[in-house]
Nucleic acid binder design. Structure first.
Lengths: 155, 155
DNA sequence: GTGCATGCAAATCTTTTGCACTCTT
DNA sequence: AAGAGTGCAAAAGATTTGCATGCAC
């Protein structure tokens, strides 16, 4: 709906909620605050829950965290990823300068098998594939790439 | 351990088990039989379980299916994938002609959001990225790409 | 005031595990 | 015979849901 918005600040976040006819609630603000504060990493619902309770003075239920995360994902504010056998992880959706159209935007991540860190590894390089698929009749709506191995720190 | 083996037949499968010092058991044969029979698709543990009971006259426990799948994945006989919010899915690891070295091999899949079909979409195109990562100190051990949208049949 | 959002608790789904027993080797 | 593998049942972890209450608008 608002793909070009870089929702880095609470005020912008509130606007996005209102524009999507969603209410500004404490739970949503709390989840946003945590995701924004740790916007360089992916957090599981459980981690978000714990951080809300350790980093803020607000308290909410796990179910609400799940519901809020689902809601924010629905309005395209989050990157969602899931590595084999683990809980889903969420991150504020950053829109970088090379992201002409966010519907075309894709993030690529490297997961270190030693330290479990998940880090972005830069620009898109799948456009050609998407065009090729289009010729074959595929309508591409999203994609996700995961590369695993040992990161420089652990290598 | 035996990355170049195309385990399409039960005899070859038995050999692979033995070469890996694993016993040839009915559960392992049953799981293999199903994965081989439906080698063109990804199956969840639950689907494998159901198919064993509907397609064969053998009966086994769900826990065994999980254990066998984990074992077969360990010896590199399976592709494993997991799409957001769903159970893991397994497929016999096909080694295609363009797969010079299986440690370098990667499968790419398209998942249709309408019919849920998961189909391979061809050749690797990530080698350049892996080389770039190597220069930065990353040791790449594996990767997985998922592209979602609407397949030609549903489009 | 209206109804969306939350808390709470229970349910669901996926996967794992302890233990005794069985079958492969 | 030895011990790897299985069945069974229970546990664990992740996520969802029904319902009554509460809060945003």
């Amino acid at each position: 709906m608002y793909p070009h918005l870089m929702a880095k600040h609470v005020d912008e976040f509130k606007e996005v909620l209102q524009e999507n006819k969603l209410r500004v609630t404490k739970s949503r603000l709390a989840v946003f605050t945590i995701l924004d504060k740790f916007s360089d990493q992916f957090l599981s619902p459980d981690e978000v829950f714990d951080l809300i309770h350790s980093e803020t003075d607000y308290s909410c239920d796990r179910a609400s965290v799940y519901r809020v995360l689902a809601t924010l994902a629905d309005i395209n504010l989050l990157n969602v990823t899931q590595f084999q056998g683990q809980a889903s992880k969420y991150q504020i959706h950053h829109h970088t300068s090379d992201c002409g159209d966010c519907h075309e935007k894709h993030e690529h991540y490297f997961k270190c098998l030693k330290c479990d860190a998940i880090q972005p590894i830069g620009d898109c390089f799948i456009d050609a594939k998407i065009k090729e698929l289009a010729k074959k009749g595929f309508l591409t709506l999203g994609h996700h790439l995961e590369i695993t191995g040992h990161c420089p720190s652990c290598n």
